[in-house]
Amino acid sequence: MEQILANALGELLTPMTAAYALAAIGLAMHFGFTGLLNFGQAAYMLVGAYAFAMSTLAGLGLVPAILISFAASIVLSFVLGIPTLRLRSDYLAIVTIAAAEILRFIVSTTGLNDVTGGPQGLSGFARDFYSINPFPAGEYGFWAWTMDEKGLWVRVVAWSLVIIAALFVSKMIRSPWGRVIKGIREDEDAVRSLGKNVYSYKMQSLIIGGMLGTLAGIVFVLPRAVQPGNFGTGLTFFIWTILLLGGAATVLGPIIGSMIFWVLLSLTDGLLSAGVDSGVITFITQNQIGGIRFMLVGIGLMLLVIFRPQGIFGNKKELYFNG
């Protein structure tokens, strides 16, 4: 039992929790503050993961690899935004989710085995990152948060990025720029009538939130291999659940949302698994636990949106759904 709890609490600080938090902060910029229905955050993460991995494997350093990832992310924003940002918002939803799937199909096609690794994906690209690890080899942390020097390094970097991103977004949102963005969320015609180029601002928001998603993609793959299967629609839906859990129009919401999400998921997983092992739960097998937790995520998402659309921490007054 203690092990289950430790596993769950260990999720609080994993790089994956940080990556999801980063992606959700980007989505908060899109949806929570600008009202853009981006259902392709997985595409931005995919672009980050692949551009970073391909660049470093091609022998480029970390900084050029990150810059290339950002450049690819901006290109993606233009590709998604130009056809859709002038149209009604549900077009963006359909196009972004479609684009995410297109990208995933393309990187996993066997024809591109030499470039993207095809269905196998890419690995061995993070050596440069771990080679600049300032922490000496050893064991760090305690109890649920025990890790080796690599784990420590990647956690420090991942969570620093989360904090920087949160500060950056909160600064942007409180600026006159953020005022225009929030105005667009409320009513874009009104903002247009005040002489603001709404299309351009939406594009800027798409780019900024997308770059945060791209950064999330890099953080996401640092401790593992790049696998095309990880960037499916399920990833996007998880990020949405996290965002809505914490509150879409908040900056801290996505971070806390990610932590709660992963702790709860690990906890239910552990409890179900223990229940099956000990014979308390008989109607499912170990094999089916993964499916159950997806069902829980789905139910959670529905209940949240219906009964608490502002999220756990969101202010009821800052209800952000319109239309």
Binding site: M16, R224, A225, G229, G234, I289, R293, F294
Partner: peptide, 26 residues
């Protein structure tokens, strides 16, 4: 037959019997 090694499952839009899985799951 092509082998795919993944840390987690794969999500496939295609008509594929490969379930959407999370990286920590099955």
């Amino acid at each position: 037959l092509v082998l795919v090694t993944t840390l987690g499952g794969s999500t496939a839009l295609a008509i594929a019997p490969n379930p959407t899985q999370d990286i920590t799951s099955q």
